[in-house]
């Protein structure tokens, strides 16, 4: 299988891995957002929903493992590409012309990615851990746990909101970029892909960020 690793480690191969993993994460985020938005259906429904997932825990564990691998490959290749690309361009220009020829989103993928990574670590440590092994798992009061986490800690909530805006930035470039990487750039469809990507990023950023906003400002406690 030497040819496979050689292909995936070529400049185009590494990008291909970024695009495959990126699109997988994009699909995952849709499921995740739907799950989060179900909080608006109220404490009973949400808690029942989360509890109902207990029955398929083994399957969820497998999916989580795949997801973790996808993240690892995405992050590993992203950082590797960034380091290699920096080496390919050692000198800086005295005048920065990039403002005129490219978008901010496209130039800051490693920065936005890194912030998402920091968020991810905190997020796993708080939400994921608690839902699976910690406090929320013990009490089964998932809704209350999330509500309190946001309501009682404004710094945490604000960071969460900030990270979701940053995620929107990452996705706004990433979505169409993945299609270009796959070679699906056609003048009939590409403008539509860019628009769908923008809309998707907007829905993700607003959707995810709406939860902490709701519990910070519109939640009366119980």
């Amino acid at each position: 299988m030497g040819w496979l690793s050689q292909s995936l480690n070529s400049s185009i191969g590494k990008k291909f891995v970024m695009a495959v993993t990126g699109i997988s994460l994009i699909l995952f985020l849709i499921i995740h957002l739907l799950n989060n938005l179900s909080m608006y259906l109220g404490p009973e429904t949400y808690t029942a929903l989360v509890k109902s997932l207990d029955g398929i825990k083994p399957l969820i564990r497998v999916i989580e493992l795949v997801l973790a691998l996808v993240f690892v490959f995405h992050i590993f290749n992203g950082v590797r590409l960034w380091l290699e690309n920096k080496k390919a361009r050692p000198g800086k220009y005295a005048v920065n012309g990039s403002v005129k020829n490219s978008t901010l989103f496209s130039r800051t993928m490693i920065q936005t990615g890194s912030i998402i990574f920091i968020f991810l670590v905190i997020h796993l440590n708080t939400m994921w851990y608690s839902f699976n092994f910690g406090e929320a798992h013990a009490t089964h009061d998932y809704y209350y746990f999330v509500a309190e986490a946001f309501n009682s800690n404004i710094i945490y909530s604000l960071f969460y909101i900030f990270a979701m805006i940053v995620l929107g930035f990452h996705l706004n470039h990433g979505f169409q970029s993945a299609f270009q990487t796959f070679g699906w750039n056609h003048k009939k469809y590409f403008p539509l892909i860019e628009k769908i990507g923008f809309l998707y990023s907007l829905v993700m950023a607003i959707g995810f960020a709406s939860i902490p906003v709701y519990f910070l400002f519109f939640y009366g406690g119980n």
Binding site: S102, R107, Q180
Partner: peptide, 29 residues
Amino acid sequence: GFGSCTNTYACEAECPKGISVTNIARMNR
């Protein structure tokens, strides 16, 4: 030692001959 493409499309914007990045898509494919 050239770098990888991150699809910023700066190349297309600066190309004196207006070469399109759809060529890059074709090559990836």
